[in-house]
């Protein structure tokens, strides 16, 4: 992998492979992006007077997002960002990546029914259309008749109204369930690329499981871990499915930034403001990615 800088083809031949993608990326990606960027400096709406005569408003849309006087009030941008941060930490980093790594390690170099069952069920949760998933989770979490509370009840445990009493926890668990398959599959495949001899050598010198993980597996997997984190962080930042479960409530307690954008752009058709939020979100993700990539580069240097 490290010798990738050596090209097989000349630049011209290589470029030929990129032409179709270039077309799509320029027409359907870069062009609309530039447009959105422009809209974020206007008061463009779809209905109402501003739809007929949109005005250039400079940085007003951005300033409104960062109006620190009300920034952390329920329903405002700052509080949405804070909810999103906890959601990403909980469901992407701890939930999906954590569960993904645990499952991948548990089934490291194993085959058989148990593995097939776990992997198939995880993938199923990942591929079912989101409207369907929303109904399944309503049924699962329902206060009176939900499956979860039936189980808790039969174990003699408390039966909270999940989406009401613990809304953020509920969508964190939900998103872990929804997306863990990607990390499971990625880490499983990554583990398979590690030559078994490395582990066997470690066994001979009597390393503990934790030492093997920390000193052998993790350094070799770091690239894959970062690929995984980059993608699931971004996906989780932008995921909209929790809206179908909670609508952002009760009282904004699950209003992720994606839902905040939806409320602005779709419910009230304020596309200027909505565009500004989208641009800010992109910049936050870019900053995170720069952090991740710096870590990746450090790995290359030390490798």
């Amino acid at each position: 992998m490290e010798e990738r800088s050596a090209g097989v083809f000349s630049g011209k031949v290589g470029a030929a492979f990129l032409i179709p993608a270039l077309f799509f990326i320029v027409v359907f990606l870069i062009f609309p992006f530039v447009w959105i960027f422009y809209l974020s400096f206007t008061n463009q709406t779809l209905t109402g007077a501003a739809a007929a005569n949109p005005q250039f408003v400079g940085l007003a849309n951005y300033a409104r997002l960062f109006d620190f006087e009300r920034w952390m009030r329920a329903g405002e941008f700052g509080s949405s960002l804070w909810i999103t941060t906890r959601f990403v930490l909980g469901s992407a980093l701890i939930g999906q990546a954590g569960l993904g790594m645990s499952v991948a390690l548990a089934f490291y170099r194993r085959r058989g029914f148990l593995r097939e069952m776990v992997y198939t069920l995880a993938v199923l949760a990942w591929i079912i259309p989101e409207v369907v998933v929303a109904f399944c989770w309503w049924a699962f979490l329902d206060w009176r008749s939900g499956t979860l509370n039936h189980i808790l009840g039969s174990l003699g445990l408390g039966q909270p109204d999940w989406l009401f009493d613990h809304p953020l926890l509920s969508i964190i668990i939900f998103n872990t369930w929804r997306g863990a398959a990607f990390s499971i599959l990625l880490f499983s495949s990554a583990l398979e690329t590690i030559p078994p001899s490395y582990i066997e050598t470690a066994d001979v010198v009597g390393a503990s499981a934790w030492q093997k993980f920390r000193d052998i597996l993790l350094p070799m997997l770091r690239g894959h871990v970062l690929t995984d984190l980059i993608l699931i962080t971004l996906w989780t930042f932008n995921v909209f499915t929790p809206f179908l479960l909670t609508g952002g409530g009760p009282v904004f307690r699950t209003q992720l930034v994606s839902i905040y954008t939806y409320r602005t752009a779709f419910k009230f058709f304020e596309f200027g403001k909505g565009s500004a939020i989208a641009v800010v979100m992109m910049l936050i993700n870019l900053a995170l990615a720069m952090g991740y990539l710096t870590m990746l580069r450090r790995r290359r240097v030390t490798a």
């Binding site: 206060w143 109204d161 409530g249």
Partner: peptide, 8 residues
């Protein structure tokens, strides 16, 4: 009140 505060 719960009924008024949850999505469904």
């Amino acid at each position: 009140a719960r009924m008024q505060l949850v999505e469904d």
